[in-house]
Amino acid sequence: MSTTAIIMMAVALIVVWGGLILAIVALRSRPERTEFPPGGEDDHREDMGIIEHDT
């Protein structure tokens, strides 16, 4: 392989795989936010219909 090809290959792999590693490391160090706006609990209330009872 020519020198320029090797350099370009190295640059490509470092940028893309390096970007992937950075993204993973960043996500692992802070997987979720600690503060959210109020609400947003997943209790499925709005997915549910009104419960109807036979009387």
């Binding site: 993973i24 960043a26 996500l27 609990e41 997943d42």
Partner: peptide, 11 residues
């Protein structure tokens, strides 16, 4: 609802 979107998106 309370889940990280952009961080996983970058991955």
């Amino acid at each position: 609802r309370r889940s990280n979107m952009t961080g996983p998106g970058l991955v």
